[in-house]
Design a protein around this nucleic acid. Sequence first.
DNA 1: CGCTTTTTTTCAAACGGCAAAAAAATATTG
DNA 2: CAATATTTTTTTGCCGTTTGAAAAAAAGCG
Lengths: 401, 401
Amino acid sequence: MDETPILKLNDMKGANTLALLRVLLRRDGMSRVELARASRCDNTTVTRAVRDLFSRGVITRAGRKDLAHGRPRELLALAPDGPLLLGVALEPDRIVAVLADLRGTVRYQAEAAPDGPADCRRYLDELETRIRQLTAAAGRLPAGAGIALFGSFGTGGRLETVSSFPELANFDFPAWFQERFAFPVALCDTLIARMYHELYRHPESAAGKLMLISSGSSGIGMALAENGELRFSNNLHGGELGHNICEPDGLPCACGRRGCLETRASRRAWLEAVRTACGTPELGFAEAAKRGQAGDPAVVAATAPMICFLGTAIANQVNNLMVDKVVLTGSMMELGERFHTALETTVRSLLFPAIDRRLQMVFRSGEEESGAVGAALVAAEPLLRDFTAFRTAVPVRVSGT
Amino acid sequence: MDETPILKLNDMKGANTLALLRVLLRRDGMSRVELARASRCDNTTVTRAVRDLFSRGVITRAGRKDLAHGRPRELLALAPDGPLLLGVALEPDRIVAVLADLRGTVRYQAEAAPDGPADCRRYLDELETRIRQLTAAAGRLPAGAGIALFGSFGTGGRLETVSSFPELANFDFPAWFQERFAFPVALCDTLIARMYHELYRHPESAAGKLMLISSGSSGIGMALAENGELRFSNNLHGGELGHNICEPDGLPCACGRRGCLETRASRRAWLEAVRTACGTPELGFAEAAKRGQAGDPAVVAATAPMICFLGTAIANQVNNLMVDKVVLTGSMMELGERFHTALETTVRSLLFPAIDRRLQMVFRSGEEESGAVGAALVAAEPLLRDFTAFRTAVPVRVSGT
DNA sequence: CGCTTTTTTTCAAACGGCAAAAAAATATTG
DNA sequence: CAATATTTTTTTGCCGTTTGAAAAAAAGCG
């Protein structure tokens, strides 16, 4: 029942300061004129906004740059003692918690590998301990928190389903959090957190139409953005590419249907196929990946169906949505360059020429903290639009530091 | 290279008057307070906007409504002599041209069925004649024009590819138009025009996530909108669902690949399958559809693959994008209710339960002018945001009427 | 001092929003 | 029946916020 959106003065100011700050987040050491040109805001708007951000301790002076003629530029940078955001990724086998600045640079980090999701109470205790540990180390309270998990939730933030922690279904996480901590919390799907990580940590991805694909032990997910803004995501929940049906009468899937992409392209399905092809039922994932990367014919042959089905699913989506850039991340990306090349070739062979010409494909690996950092960035975005709320949140200090 | 969008005062005003007018477009006879409540604008904002729209001749008084107590409401309506928009659909076998008001109500209509796209010059002459005929009948010039065709074009409006008129590739249509007519013109893909038709003529579709699927002789297309705004469409160009690959090693398609949805679900493919199943190679489409609607077992069996593949493609997309509403339109919808039911059942059986619960599926038929009307609405939208340009466009009158 | 570029200040214009007033009807009361 | 109260809509006046253009100030160089 959402009607045509109307705009208030606040929305305008928020959009403009967000644009301004995003430019500064890309790179420290910009001057006011540069900010104005890059954000297409007026000079005077920038001056005013910058003054405001100074007074709130968000940015700081970072020297000056002498030009050949004229007054030198005063360079600006994110304040080192500016607001921090807590970001937490609740993954099946570990908890990652970070304190990051508005740019998503990690300042403090804590990790835990609880016994497993079996004991819900101990898991939450562990989480609480880690958060206290982080805020103590930082010596101040974060301005907000973002929690990323594999699941969905209502507008209020109450959990609905949590794929990796069935016991947490219907748990009122925001209430739990607010009973313990004095700063606001926001929940999001891990996939959305990763998308924020991509948009802020690789800001060139914030232009045009972006599709993020993340594969993990819990499936293959997808998120979309257009010009840096999330699209088609209900309550910060991502889409499940892994359950696209890609074969009319395919293999049975755990979801109860047949022919889901995951029956062909999940980590488990692939390993199974490789084991069968090699005749080694005990082969581990890492070893299998190594063999594939080395060009072992049996492994390559066993990988072909995955490439075919995954590539088709990606290409279909790219064609339909006229996507400009596809970013692939997650555990399946550990299969190495040979796999990447084969997948990209397959995808491109299925695209319309005009779309193929524009499409960029990027494989990202080694971003172990993208979920936690992205969660922090989800919590940061409202601040980037409006720091008036922030003024009250930061002065609170942890005693004894 | 699009950066984070910034907002100016004009954008704010534009967004608000657009919201206001959309409420009035839904139904004539609203009063100012009703407009304010429905659009969530302030009372006084509405008063000012309404005064402005009066002075520009866009709206008019439409009586008053007495309440039990208090001052009666002054009812407002779109002015009958308000701005008109020209909308043209260049379809393979016909030209449809309409003059419509801001709401998309057709005031004047002209249709032509040229010999075919063989002779490009005669085709364009025919178009010019029809437009002159319409403006003469109306006695005034439209405030703008929208042209819908099956194809794509650059930002400048120059045609790139036109699937139904290969000869028009690289034709500078806007230049041709501006040499002949004194009002602005905008080009769009027919699919986008149909989407605008859906959003404005069935305004309940302007809430939430909408997927429009339109099947015709030239394929199966798809367009997306979120809260009444177009999404993932390059330069008003739609996506081609018909070339989603739905079978790993399927039938060869005209596009050069294998397994495209169109090899199973296009009008032609379906008719072919039915003819084979019935053993009647001369069977016509209408007769085949009638048999299918009557439940002829051979036809039903021949239709099954289409339902399966089309249903899967739709369900995959709905799951991925968490679509709230699917609207199906175009020639394939002539297959009748039995087909609709079967398709909907198939789609729903493949959705995640949470998404199935929210999804609405609508089959539309009999909207022959949706392309032309939608094109007019494409041209209308900028006016709804800002009528200052309109002031100069309308007073121009055709002499001799 | 003249020149150039950046930054700040000043002032005007546009817009939304609150509150009070005005308007336009009906209901109530003397 | 006339005067007044009541109710709801609409308009007006005024204020705060924001952007934007132009002037002024600042900061360097030759």
